[in-house]
Design a protein around this nucleic acid. Sequence first.
DNA 1: AAAGCTTTTTGTATAATTTACAATTAGTGT
DNA 2: ACACTAATTGTAAATTATACAAAAAGCTTT
Lengths: 243, 243
Amino acid sequence: MKTYQPRLLQEDLYSIPIDAFFKSAFSVDCVIFGYHEAELKVLLIQRGTEPFENYWALPGDLVYPNEDLDSAALRILNDLTSLTNIPIQQVKTFGKVDRHPLGRVITIAYLALVEPTDLAPHASSWASDTRWHPIDDIPQLAFDHREILEVSLEELRSRILHEDLWSKVLPAKFSLTQFQELFETILGKTFDKGNFRKKVVKFKFLQKLEEAQRGVSHRPSLLYSFDAKRYQEMKANGFSFEF
Amino acid sequence: MKTYQPRLLQEDLYSIPIDAFFKSAFSVDCVIFGYHEAELKVLLIQRGTEPFENYWALPGDLVYPNEDLDSAALRILNDLTSLTNIPIQQVKTFGKVDRHPLGRVITIAYLALVEPTDLAPHASSWASDTRWHPIDDIPQLAFDHREILEVSLEELRSRILHEDLWSKVLPAKFSLTQFQELFETILGKTFDKGNFRKKVVKFKFLQKLEEAQRGVSHRPSLLYSFDAKRYQEMKANGFSFEF
DNA sequence: AAAGCTTTTTGTATAATTTACAATTAGTGT
DNA sequence: ACACTAATTGTAAATTATACAAAAAGCTTT
């Protein structure tokens, strides 16, 4: 791999054949967070091939030269875990020279937050297993995936305040307690229940329904639904959560 | 370039030689914003070489296979504009298949905010010119650089609220009016002077000095300095601006 | 059926902050 | 001395945050 000077003299710059640059590859890695009942998990695969065979890893693979990055992320996620239609977004690119043993490979990390119970990931292609891991109990990971995961978790915490990453992980009708638990779990904080509610009921995008919880052995909570249109309007006006 | 199927059947996956993936390149592009006296500019170069010869463009170039991304960005910025020691940070990776006419090249965008008057960029290497352009008067740009610039400007606006991108563009001793102008210019809003001041004087990281402005034909303003240590402490505790 | 349990929901009093201005102040220029 | 400009301070009303306490609505147990 190390056939180029790290720094060339100026007069040499034009003498490098352009082909010399086209010897690299890039991959995508998907950080799929799952939230269900106040638990945050991340989807990992077990690698069935070298390098890092048998290690747990983020689902990811090399991108074809004629493939857009976003499509590649969805395609690879589907190849390895059979998941489809996951709303991913780019996080950051990791590019240390020696991060991949087979050559120069930089990787673009993507993240998503999903509801794991209505998905059924199963290993395919070269993945030998796929499993949800609690966010505070992660095994040793392949490559630099531990770092990628940590950066992505920070991004999740930040982005969930500024955009709608969360509405799909709640049931269509949810209680304010469920709403609060979601943010408490992901942000790793707790809030005063009465005050949290008072803050949140003023948000126009939480629609109070006529319906209430049933079959619980305590006072049933009223249910709310999410008005995505109102949320987008408010976001366009600069709204973001401040918890 | 288009020698691979966009989507392969699963049984074919293992049959692709690994070398087939190592035919791509990546570049970095630097979005260097300059702030001086309530004006926001961006540093562009004029390309002295194909493709897009004579077009204005963000300073950027291909990354060597043995070069880290961050170092490459600094090296390339120096090659093209002679600037050194610019505190850059990664923004986003742009990877459309056909964004570069010479082959598959994805680009990692970097941004910085600097004070243009204490820098002296001058064109070198294949750049034929380099110049600060006001942010609201940008010529046609090479490649997808217009999009990169727009995304980076949005990121600048967001990040300046959450981290110290700004302290180096103010003089060591500055007035609260200067402080306010900086945020007004970058965010594109205006604030009530009295209220803005009342908000920021409570920030522990703005140190009131004994000194005042001199030689102005009105009441001179008191000067402040920035306490970076205090700011980092507050940031660690979750502080961010809310204007 | 009454009492108890649990969690939701509402209330409340106080403190703190925001907002929209108006008034004052400290320089320079005439 | 007076006008001018921009900095600085002040202020009253409205709004929001905070720390709790009380009440309510179901189920469960006695």
